[in-house]
Design a protein around this nucleic acid. Structure first.
Length: 307
RNA sequence: GCGUCGGUGGCAGAGUGGUCAAAUGCAAUUGGCUGUAAACCAAUCGGUCUUGUACCUACGGGGGUUCAAAUCCCUCCCGGCGCA
């Protein structure tokens, strides 16, 4: 009694490879709806800086999981998974094809592999206390609480150590990582040569500045989001916040941000590389990608598509 | 022209006789990730190989002192500043 799994299409890739545009086009053509997989676009008010797709760019295709969280609150991969699962079912029930589109590898993995993360809510009081301690100390604490977890964890990474301790305090020990995928996923990766990607990153940064990215950050701060909080989001929000505080000059901000975005793009690629199931294409191979997708869907779910 | 300070690895910048292939930061490269993932953490980073308390080449060029020089001396080249 094997239950038939829902088919989903994943479109992923580094920043500035043109995922959103390509996904909107193909989804429109094949009768799909899009669920964003972007850890920053979930936040309200994070528009230009996060590269959020505009109404016009959506081409009439429904987009989910944009603007679903307040930047004042902590979002997480677990929350993402819950929301995305709901949307996938919803889309499926209306006879459309769910497309997951984005560059947040961990978020995507929670869906593709059905990661079952330990159900332990963040404990801010505990975290604050633990943050004062050195990694060494945290590690020895964890060793006492959960020996097995301590064996595998990065012992220099306070953030991981704190979460592990948090879990151990509630559950006693970290459960074995479970994967329980409810979907059959096709993962399409978009890839550009480094030189081209670097160029895209530069051009896009300049155009975002022109579109008012700096005043976007100013506005967010005016709405009581602290500089510290803004910096914690990384990249554009981090560097522009630093600039607005007068910590760095504009030129430094732009230069450092650009290399930082490049670093990020490489980190994304290193993450994706580990997953051999991803099928890579150049973003201009639209036809090929479409064929890949229609083959995968086997025309079964395409009853609503207008091809 | 005289005086003076300086020229160090891709860049910035320590070091001022041995423990220096040279601190540190940046960049570069590689990697990790069990509810912050654009976050967070790590490794490598002159060359060679038999991977070592190994060898070679290196702190502007050349020469010298010394058992030993990035470090001291002479000289040349280049730059900043001051005086002419």
């Amino acid at each position: 009694m094997k239950k038939k799994k829902i088919k989903i299409i994943i479109i992923l890739g580094q920043t500035a490879t043109g995922k959103s545009d390509l996904a909107a086009r193909i989804a429109k053509k094949l009768g799909g709806e899009i669920i964003s997989a972007d850890s920053r676009q979930v936040y309200k008010g994070f528009d230009i800086g996060s590269g959020k797709i505009t109404k016009k760019e959506m081409r009439g295709v429904f987009h989910y999981l944009l603007d679903v969280a307040s930047p004042k609150r902590q979002f997480s991969a677990a929350k993402y998974k819950k929301l995305a699962d709901n949307k996938i079912i919803k889309i499926y029930k209306t006879g459309k094809i769910p497309f997951i589109v984005g560059g947040s590898g961990f978020y995507i993995q929670t869906i593709v592999d059905g990661l079952v993360l330990p159900k332990v809510e963040p404990n801010n009081k505990l975290r604050k206390e633990l943050e004062k301690k050195s990694a060494k100390k945290l590690f020895s604490m964890l060793k006492k609480l959960d020996k097995n977890r301590a064996k595998k964890i990065e012992k220099d990474n306070p953030r991981r150590l704190i979460r592990a301790i948090e879990i151990a305090k509630v559950l006693g020990k970290t459960p074995k990582l479970k994967t329980n995928s409810e979907y059959e996923a096709l993962q399409i990766g978009l890839k550009l040569p480094d030189k081209k990607l670097k160029n895209n990153i530069h051009k896009r940064l300049m155009s975002r500045i022109r579109k008012g990215m700096i005043s976007e950050v100013k506005k967010l701060h005016a709405k009581n989001i602290s500089w510290k909080r803004l910096e914690s989001f990384g990249l554009e929000y981090r560097f522009i916040a630093r600039y607005l505080q007068g910590k760095i000059k504009k030129k430094e901000m732009l230069d450092e941000l650009e290399t930082e975005i490049w670093h990020f793009a490489k980190r994304q690629m290193r993450w994706f590389k580990r997953d051999a199931r991803i099928k890579w294409f150049n973003p201009n191979q639209v036809k090929k990608i479409e064929i890949e997708i229609t083959n995968f869907l086997n025309n079964y779910e395409l009853r609503n598509a207008k091809i």
